[in-house]
Amino acid sequence: MSDYGDSDANWIFYQDRPEWSDVTPVPENDGPTPVVVINHSERFVDVYNYFRAVLQKDEKSERALELTKDAVELNSANYTVWQYRRDLLKALGTDLRLELDYVETVIKLSPKNYQVWHHRRVLVEWLQDPSLELDLTGDALEQDPKNYHAWQHRQWVIKTFGLFDNEMDFVDSLISDDVRNNSAWNQRYFIMNNHHGWTDENVQKEVAYTLEKIRFVKNNESSWNYLRGVLLHDCKGMSGNNAVKSFCEELYNKDCRSPYLLAMLIDCCDEAVKNEEMNDLYNAERAIELCQALANKYDRMRCKYWNYLCNKFKNFKNNATNKTDTKN
Protein backbone atom coordinates (compact mmCIF):
# COMPACT_ATOMS: atom_id res chain seq x y z
CA MET A 1 0.00 0.00 0.00
CA SER A 2 2.88 2.38 0.55
CA ASP A 3 5.60 3.30 -1.94
CA TYR A 4 7.88 0.95 -0.10
CA GLY A 5 5.93 -2.12 -1.10
CA ASP A 6 4.06 -4.67 0.91
CA SER A 7 6.49 -7.49 1.10
CA ASP A 8 8.89 -7.60 3.99
CA ALA A 9 11.82 -7.88 1.60
CA ASN A 10 11.20 -4.40 0.17
CA TRP A 11 10.16 -2.86 3.41
CA ILE A 12 12.26 0.03 4.65
CA PHE A 13 11.80 1.03 8.26
CA TYR A 14 10.68 4.58 8.86
CA GLN A 15 13.75 5.08 10.98
CA ASP A 16 15.85 4.41 7.88
CA ARG A 17 13.90 6.66 5.51
CA PRO A 18 15.75 9.91 4.69
CA GLU A 19 12.53 11.90 4.26
CA TRP A 20 11.59 11.04 7.85
CA SER A 21 14.95 11.94 9.35
CA ASP A 22 13.54 15.18 10.76
CA VAL A 23 11.13 13.23 12.99
CA THR A 24 12.11 11.75 16.31
CA PRO A 25 10.19 8.53 16.87
CA VAL A 26 8.15 8.30 20.07
CA PRO A 27 8.34 4.84 21.61
CA GLU A 28 5.35 3.44 23.46
CA ASN A 29 5.58 4.20 27.16
CA ASP A 30 3.88 1.31 28.87
CA GLY A 31 5.19 2.31 32.28
CA PRO A 32 7.35 0.40 34.74
CA THR A 33 4.94 -2.52 35.19
CA PRO A 34 3.63 -3.63 31.79
CA VAL A 35 1.32 -6.65 31.59
CA VAL A 36 -0.44 -8.36 28.65
CA VAL A 37 2.47 -7.19 26.53
CA ILE A 38 2.11 -7.92 22.84
CA ASN A 39 5.35 -8.98 21.24
CA HIS A 40 4.83 -6.79 18.16
CA SER A 41 6.89 -7.19 15.01
CA GLU A 42 9.75 -4.74 14.46
CA ARG A 43 7.77 -3.20 11.65
CA PHE A 44 4.77 -2.62 13.95
CA VAL A 45 6.96 -0.97 16.56
CA ASP A 46 8.65 1.23 13.95
CA VAL A 47 5.40 2.37 12.28
CA TYR A 48 3.68 3.15 15.56
CA ASN A 49 6.73 4.98 16.93
CA TYR A 50 6.39 7.35 13.98
CA PHE A 51 2.60 7.41 14.25
CA ARG A 52 2.89 8.65 17.84
CA ALA A 53 5.46 11.22 16.70
CA VAL A 54 3.24 12.77 14.01
CA LEU A 55 0.18 12.57 16.24
CA GLN A 56 2.00 14.38 19.00
CA LYS A 57 3.17 17.08 16.60
CA ASP A 58 -0.30 17.11 15.04
CA GLU A 59 1.44 17.06 11.69
CA LYS A 60 -0.99 17.47 8.82
CA SER A 61 0.93 16.22 5.80
CA GLU A 62 0.75 13.79 2.89
CA ARG A 63 3.48 11.68 4.45
CA ALA A 64 1.43 11.44 7.64
CA LEU A 65 -1.55 10.31 5.57
CA GLU A 66 0.60 7.59 4.00
CA LEU A 67 1.85 6.60 7.43
CA THR A 68 -1.70 6.04 8.65
CA LYS A 69 -2.13 3.51 5.82
CA ASP A 70 0.78 1.52 7.15
CA ALA A 71 -0.58 1.82 10.68
CA VAL A 72 -4.01 0.60 9.49
CA GLU A 73 -2.44 -2.30 7.65
CA LEU A 74 -0.80 -3.44 10.87
CA ASN A 75 -3.92 -2.93 12.99
CA SER A 76 -7.11 -1.84 11.27
CA ALA A 77 -8.90 -1.82 14.64
CA ASN A 78 -6.94 1.22 15.91
CA TYR A 79 -9.69 3.85 16.04
CA THR A 80 -7.24 6.67 16.82
CA VAL A 81 -5.40 6.01 13.58
CA TRP A 82 -8.68 6.24 11.67
CA GLN A 83 -9.72 9.42 13.47
CA TYR A 84 -6.35 11.01 12.78
CA ARG A 85 -6.64 9.93 9.16
CA ARG A 86 -10.05 11.62 8.89
CA ASP A 87 -8.62 14.80 10.39
CA LEU A 88 -5.80 14.62 7.85
CA LEU A 89 -8.21 14.12 4.95
CA LYS A 90 -10.05 17.25 6.01
CA ALA A 91 -6.96 19.32 6.59
CA LEU A 92 -5.33 18.29 3.30
CA GLY A 93 -8.51 18.50 1.24
CA THR A 94 -7.88 15.04 -0.10
CA ASP A 95 -10.20 13.69 -2.81
CA LEU A 96 -12.64 11.67 -0.76
CA ARG A 97 -13.57 9.49 -3.73
CA LEU A 98 -10.06 8.03 -3.61
CA GLU A 99 -10.59 7.46 0.08
CA LEU A 100 -13.77 5.51 -0.68
CA ASP A 101 -11.70 3.23 -2.94
CA TYR A 102 -9.09 2.84 -0.26
CA VAL A 103 -11.49 1.98 2.54
CA GLU A 104 -13.25 -0.46 0.23
CA THR A 105 -10.03 -2.43 -0.09
CA VAL A 106 -9.64 -2.42 3.69
CA ILE A 107 -13.26 -3.54 4.16
CA LYS A 108 -12.62 -6.41 1.76
CA LEU A 109 -9.68 -7.49 3.91
CA SER A 110 -11.45 -6.94 7.26
CA PRO A 111 -15.20 -7.15 6.64
CA LYS A 112 -15.98 -7.64 10.32
CA ASN A 113 -14.13 -4.68 11.72
CA TYR A 114 -16.17 -1.90 13.37
CA GLN A 115 -13.68 0.89 12.63
CA VAL A 116 -13.53 0.43 8.87
CA TRP A 117 -17.31 0.51 8.53
CA HIS A 118 -17.46 3.58 10.73
CA HIS A 119 -14.88 5.29 8.52
CA ARG A 120 -16.93 4.42 5.48
CA ARG A 121 -20.04 5.86 7.05
CA VAL A 122 -18.36 9.15 7.90
CA LEU A 123 -17.09 9.46 4.31
CA VAL A 124 -20.57 8.84 2.92
CA GLU A 125 -21.93 11.47 5.30
CA TRP A 126 -19.30 13.97 4.20
CA LEU A 127 -19.90 13.31 0.53
CA GLN A 128 -23.66 12.97 0.94
CA ASP A 129 -23.32 10.37 -1.76
CA PRO A 130 -24.62 6.86 -1.09
CA SER A 131 -24.36 5.68 -4.72
CA LEU A 132 -21.67 3.06 -4.11
CA GLU A 133 -22.98 1.69 -0.84
CA LEU A 134 -25.53 -0.85 -2.03
CA ASP A 135 -22.91 -2.48 -4.26
CA LEU A 136 -20.30 -2.38 -1.52
CA THR A 137 -22.56 -4.02 1.06
CA GLY A 138 -23.94 -6.33 -1.63
CA ASP A 139 -20.39 -7.59 -2.26
CA ALA A 140 -19.76 -8.06 1.46
CA LEU A 141 -23.04 -9.95 1.80
CA GLU A 142 -22.10 -12.15 -1.11
CA GLN A 143 -19.05 -13.23 0.89
CA ASP A 144 -21.07 -13.60 4.09
CA PRO A 145 -24.84 -13.12 3.78
CA LYS A 146 -25.12 -12.66 7.55
CA ASN A 147 -22.36 -10.07 8.06
CA TYR A 148 -23.89 -7.87 10.77
CA HIS A 149 -21.67 -4.86 9.96
CA ALA A 150 -22.64 -4.92 6.30
CA TRP A 151 -26.35 -5.11 7.17
CA GLN A 152 -26.01 -2.28 9.66
CA HIS A 153 -24.31 -0.05 7.08
CA ARG A 154 -26.84 -1.01 4.43
CA GLN A 155 -29.82 -0.22 6.64
CA TRP A 156 -28.29 3.10 7.61
CA VAL A 157 -27.67 4.10 3.98
CA ILE A 158 -31.10 2.97 2.83
CA LYS A 159 -32.88 4.79 5.60
CA THR A 160 -30.77 7.95 5.49
CA PHE A 161 -30.92 8.36 1.73
CA GLY A 162 -34.26 6.66 1.00
CA LEU A 163 -32.86 3.89 -1.19
CA PHE A 164 -35.70 1.44 -0.76
CA ASP A 165 -36.71 1.04 -4.40
CA ASN A 166 -34.86 -2.13 -5.39
CA GLU A 167 -34.24 -3.52 -1.94
CA MET A 168 -37.09 -6.02 -2.02
CA ASP A 169 -35.58 -7.66 -5.13
CA PHE A 170 -32.27 -7.94 -3.32
CA VAL A 171 -33.96 -9.54 -0.32
CA ASP A 172 -36.01 -11.88 -2.53
CA SER A 173 -32.88 -13.17 -4.17
CA LEU A 174 -31.13 -13.73 -0.82
CA ILE A 175 -34.13 -15.61 0.55
CA SER A 176 -34.27 -17.68 -2.65
CA ASP A 177 -30.59 -18.51 -2.20
CA ASP A 178 -31.06 -19.48 1.44
CA VAL A 179 -34.49 -19.51 2.98
CA ARG A 180 -32.84 -19.83 6.40
CA ASN A 181 -31.00 -16.51 6.11
CA ASN A 182 -32.46 -14.74 9.12
CA SER A 183 -30.71 -11.46 8.25
CA ALA A 184 -32.51 -11.38 4.91
CA TRP A 185 -35.88 -11.95 6.59
CA ASN A 186 -35.08 -9.15 8.99
CA GLN A 187 -34.27 -6.89 6.06
CA ARG A 188 -37.62 -7.81 4.51
CA TYR A 189 -39.34 -6.60 7.66
CA PHE A 190 -37.24 -3.43 7.60
CA ILE A 191 -38.38 -2.60 4.05
CA MET A 192 -42.03 -3.36 4.77
CA ASN A 193 -41.93 -1.33 7.94
CA ASN A 194 -40.23 1.74 6.47
CA HIS A 195 -41.27 1.71 2.85
CA HIS A 196 -44.25 -0.35 1.75
CA GLY A 197 -46.15 -0.04 5.00
CA TRP A 198 -48.47 -2.52 6.64
CA THR A 199 -51.69 -1.95 4.77
CA ASP A 200 -54.09 -4.85 4.98
CA GLU A 201 -53.30 -5.74 1.39
CA ASN A 202 -49.56 -5.80 2.11
CA VAL A 203 -50.10 -7.88 5.24
CA GLN A 204 -51.99 -10.50 3.22
CA LYS A 205 -49.34 -10.44 0.48
CA GLU A 206 -46.54 -10.97 2.97
CA VAL A 207 -48.50 -13.73 4.68
CA ALA A 208 -48.96 -15.50 1.33
CA TYR A 209 -45.24 -15.10 0.48
CA THR A 210 -44.15 -16.44 3.85
CA LEU A 211 -46.55 -19.39 3.89
CA GLU A 212 -45.17 -20.41 0.51
CA LYS A 213 -41.66 -20.39 1.95
CA ILE A 214 -42.77 -22.37 4.99
CA ARG A 215 -44.49 -24.91 2.75
CA PHE A 216 -41.11 -25.38 1.10
CA VAL A 217 -39.06 -25.65 4.34
CA LYS A 218 -41.23 -26.20 7.39
CA ASN A 219 -38.71 -26.35 10.14
CA ASN A 220 -37.29 -22.86 9.70
CA GLU A 221 -37.43 -20.45 12.63
CA SER A 222 -36.67 -17.43 10.42
CA SER A 223 -39.75 -17.70 8.23
CA TRP A 224 -42.02 -18.54 11.17
CA ASN A 225 -40.68 -15.53 13.08
CA TYR A 226 -41.31 -13.30 10.10
CA LEU A 227 -44.86 -14.61 9.86
CA ARG A 228 -45.43 -13.61 13.48
CA GLY A 229 -43.90 -10.23 12.72
CA VAL A 230 -46.31 -9.68 9.85
CA LEU A 231 -49.25 -10.74 11.98
CA LEU A 232 -48.37 -8.07 14.52
CA HIS A 233 -49.89 -5.75 11.91
CA ASP A 234 -53.00 -7.82 11.20
CA CYS A 235 -55.96 -6.17 12.91
CA LYS A 236 -57.43 -9.62 13.53
CA GLY A 237 -54.36 -10.67 15.47
CA MET A 238 -52.33 -13.83 15.17
CA SER A 239 -55.22 -16.25 15.45
CA GLY A 240 -57.66 -14.28 13.30
CA ASN A 241 -55.91 -14.54 9.94
CA ASN A 242 -57.84 -17.12 7.92
CA ALA A 243 -55.00 -17.89 5.53
CA VAL A 244 -52.64 -18.60 8.41
CA LYS A 245 -55.27 -20.52 10.31
CA SER A 246 -56.13 -22.89 7.48
CA PHE A 247 -52.45 -23.26 6.53
CA CYS A 248 -51.45 -24.24 10.05
CA GLU A 249 -54.36 -26.61 10.54
CA GLU A 250 -53.63 -28.23 7.20
CA LEU A 251 -49.99 -28.74 8.12
CA TYR A 252 -50.99 -30.12 11.48
CA ASN A 253 -53.52 -32.51 9.96
CA LYS A 254 -50.87 -33.69 7.52
CA ASP A 255 -48.82 -34.70 10.58
CA CYS A 256 -46.30 -31.86 10.46
CA ARG A 257 -44.93 -31.53 13.98
CA SER A 258 -42.33 -28.85 13.51
CA PRO A 259 -41.83 -27.19 16.90
CA TYR A 260 -42.32 -23.83 15.19
CA LEU A 261 -45.76 -24.87 13.93
CA LEU A 262 -46.76 -26.18 17.33
CA ALA A 263 -45.42 -23.05 19.01
CA MET A 264 -47.46 -20.92 16.62
CA LEU A 265 -50.61 -22.87 17.50
CA ILE A 266 -49.83 -22.48 21.21
CA ASP A 267 -49.49 -18.74 20.76
CA CYS A 268 -52.78 -18.59 18.88
CA CYS A 269 -54.35 -20.41 21.85
CA ASP A 270 -52.67 -17.95 24.20
CA GLU A 271 -54.09 -15.02 22.29
CA ALA A 272 -57.59 -16.48 22.31
CA VAL A 273 -57.34 -17.27 26.03
CA LYS A 274 -56.13 -13.78 26.85
CA ASN A 275 -58.95 -12.27 24.83
CA GLU A 276 -61.33 -14.52 26.76
CA GLU A 277 -62.66 -15.94 23.52
CA MET A 278 -64.72 -19.12 23.47
CA ASN A 279 -62.83 -20.74 20.63
CA ASP A 280 -63.16 -24.36 19.46
CA LEU A 281 -59.79 -24.34 17.73
CA TYR A 282 -57.68 -22.20 20.05
CA ASN A 283 -58.12 -22.73 23.76
CA ALA A 284 -56.21 -23.64 26.92
CA GLU A 285 -56.90 -27.38 26.57
CA ARG A 286 -55.31 -27.52 23.16
CA ALA A 287 -52.36 -25.41 24.31
CA ILE A 288 -51.74 -27.85 27.17
CA GLU A 289 -51.86 -30.78 24.77
CA LEU A 290 -49.42 -29.11 22.38
CA CYS A 291 -47.00 -28.12 25.15
CA GLN A 292 -47.01 -31.70 26.39
CA ALA A 293 -46.43 -33.03 22.89
CA LEU A 294 -43.44 -30.71 22.50
CA ALA A 295 -42.04 -31.51 25.94
CA ASN A 296 -42.42 -35.26 25.63
CA LYS A 297 -41.92 -35.94 21.97
CA TYR A 298 -41.17 -33.26 19.42
CA ASP A 299 -38.79 -30.91 21.22
CA ARG A 300 -37.60 -32.83 24.22
CA MET A 301 -34.39 -30.88 24.68
CA ARG A 302 -36.54 -27.88 25.59
CA CYS A 303 -38.95 -29.88 27.74
CA LYS A 304 -38.48 -27.61 30.76
CA TYR A 305 -39.54 -24.58 28.77
CA TRP A 306 -42.60 -26.28 27.27
CA ASN A 307 -43.60 -27.60 30.69
CA TYR A 308 -43.27 -24.07 32.04
CA LEU A 309 -45.68 -22.84 29.36
CA CYS A 310 -47.95 -25.83 29.98
CA ASN A 311 -48.21 -24.90 33.64
CA LYS A 312 -49.20 -21.37 32.74
CA PHE A 313 -52.14 -22.70 30.76
CA LYS A 314 -53.02 -25.17 33.49
CA ASN A 315 -53.07 -22.38 36.05
CA PHE A 316 -55.20 -20.30 33.78
CA LYS A 317 -57.64 -23.17 33.33
CA ASN A 318 -57.82 -23.80 37.08
CA ASN A 319 -58.45 -20.14 37.75
CA ALA A 320 -61.16 -20.08 35.12
CA THR A 321 -62.79 -23.16 36.64
CA ASN A 322 -62.59 -21.61 40.11
CA LYS A 323 -64.18 -18.46 38.81
CA THR A 324 -67.03 -20.44 37.30
CA ASP A 325 -67.43 -22.40 40.55
CA THR A 326 -67.61 -19.19 42.55
CA LYS A 327 -70.22 -17.81 40.20
CA ASN A 328 -72.30 -21.00 40.58
Binding site: V35, V36, V37, I38, N39, H40, S41, F44, Y48, L74, N75, S76, A77, N78, Y79, T80
Partner: peptide
Protein backbone atom coordinates in the same frame (compact mmCIF):
# COMPACT_ATOMS: atom_id res chain seq x y z
CA UNK B 1 -1.95 -14.09 28.64
CA UNK B 2 -1.23 -11.77 31.54
CA UNK B 3 2.42 -12.00 30.65
CA UNK B 4 3.53 -11.77 27.01
CA UNK B 5 1.43 -12.30 23.87
CA UNK B 6 2.59 -13.28 20.37
CA UNK B 7 2.72 -10.70 17.55
CA UNK B 8 -0.26 -12.45 15.92
CA UNK B 9 -2.37 -10.56 18.48
CA UNK B 10 -1.23 -7.15 17.21
CA UNK B 11 -4.78 -6.38 16.12
CA UNK B 12 -5.69 -6.35 19.83
CA UNK B 13 -3.13 -3.62 20.47
CA UNK B 14 -5.66 -0.96 21.51
CA UNK B 15 -7.77 -3.36 23.60
CA UNK B 16 -5.20 -4.98 25.85
CA UNK B 17 -7.28 -4.08 28.91
CA UNK B 18 -9.99 -6.48 27.72
CA UNK B 19 -7.45 -9.30 27.48
CA UNK B 20 -6.35 -8.49 31.02
CA UNK B 21 -10.02 -8.53 32.07
CA UNK B 22 -10.72 -11.94 30.54
CA UNK B 23 -7.60 -13.29 32.23
Amino acid sequence: FLNVLPSSLSSHDTTRVTIAYFS
